[in-house]
Design a binder for these strands. Structure first.
Lengths: 215, 215
DNA sequence: GATCTAATCCCCCTATTCGGTGATTGTCCG
DNA sequence: CGGACAATCACCGAATAGGGGGATTAGATC
């Protein structure tokens, strides 16, 4: 069964040249070709592609928003961004929106077929400079999202509930109401939490809990 | 000037075959070949490579730790991980440690030369399945590390300093000492911060500050 | 020169948190 | 059954945080 491919690009020449290019591969089948993303959900539904080629700069809605919508509605569709932009924000936004590949247009033609095949077989084709940016982004993430061997503080289920309340800024009294227990019990739990986390104030608890993503 | 390459791999056969392979390229020069990473900082210093090929499974210290050390001491050195592992944790750890590429050993030979060249020219070679994992990881990050238009609360420089102290769990008194101002001034700043962030307790401040990465 | 803002400081009073110590209940497990 | 532990509640006193008010100084802005 051939791979069905849909294109979103406002430039007619590009759409046509990509169509021609893809026709040289019998394994590919053009599912659709659209000049904007205003009806992208409908377009995808009707053309039923396996892979979507998405331009970023587009009249009306941005290609990035379109990716978000498409991935939400059709999680199985793979999206390959193709654009001239390589500023960090757009790259990162596209990926967060659900793109599975990102190639720059300047070396589009001689890479596109390989990229689609790579996508199809579980890869994520990226232009070299994009790949580097992506790795740099991961390296620059704040410590607390990186996989540190999150130490286990042996908090009991109830203590974790109390902790969650604390992190959300509730006072002892509010926590007591929330959990239908007395003020004193809340205090006991929090004392135990302090003990187990080796801290001594709400601020420290919130900090540690968020940093080590215990909550 | 040729690219200087150093190898860390505990398997002598692999080291030798890579050495042979790289010798076929005049643009490459072997800077060193080491069976373990116990003296990796010395090794790197003496062999002075542009690019390091790093195995993960190694006697003594893990290759990932070695990458961390090397990148810390020699930020300019590019590291290419080469391993049989592709579990999410090791991939992600390696990247966070500072690796600029990650290729699987099973298709090492026919990719290695291309990978090194890509690395050299600003790319980040990754085996397809690794690239996909990396993108998935980025997509799964919690909302608060994604680039939301972080609202500006118009905190003054001094207020930001105080906020940082608060987030780190310091009491008013400790903050006063730290910043060489009086307890009362700390209080004033914190009152203003409360006002600007629309909160009313340290716990809420810490939560909001961390969530919206104001600090 | 008048206005504005950041940064500093002070007082009063109340609310909340923190540390220590102790107790009861129920459940799970060997 | 006895021990371990989670979960509940209580009291005391000290420390800290929070809300309200008002004040001065030095710079920037106009």
């Amino acid at each position: 069964m051939p791979v069905r491919i849909a294109i979103f690009d406002d430039n007619k020449n590009i759409r046509e040249s990509i169509t021609l290019l893809l026709q040289t591969e019998p394994a590919f089948e053009m599912a659709g070709s659209f000049p904007n993303v205003l009806d992208c959900l409908d377009d995808v539904k009707k053309s039923n592609p396996n892979i979507v080629l998405m331009d970023i700069e587009m009249p009306g809605m941005s290609g990035i928003e379109a990716v978000r919508l498409i991935k939400k509605e059709f999680p199985g569709v793979l999206v390959l961004m193709q654009t001239v932009f390589e500023d960090d924000d757009r790259v990162f936004d596209s990926i967060c929106a659900g793109a599975s590949g990102y190639i720059l247009k300047n070396h589009l033609n001689h890479k596109l077929i390989a990229a689609i095949k790579e996508l199809q077989f579980g890869g994520s084709p990226m232009s070299p400079s994009i790949a580097r940016k992506v790795l740099n982004k991961l390296q620059q993430l704040p410590e607390y999202v990186k996989p540190e061997a999150a130490p286990d503080y042996h908090l009991t289920p109830r203590e974790k509930e109390v902790l969650a309340c604390v992190v959300n800024g509730l006072s002892y009294k509010m926590i007591a109401d929330q959990l239908f227990i007395s003020y004193e019990t809340v205090r006991t739990h929090i004392k135990n939490i302090y003990e187990k986390l080796h801290v001594a104030s709400l601020a420290e608890v919130v900090h540690k809990a968020m940093k080590e993503k215990i909550v």
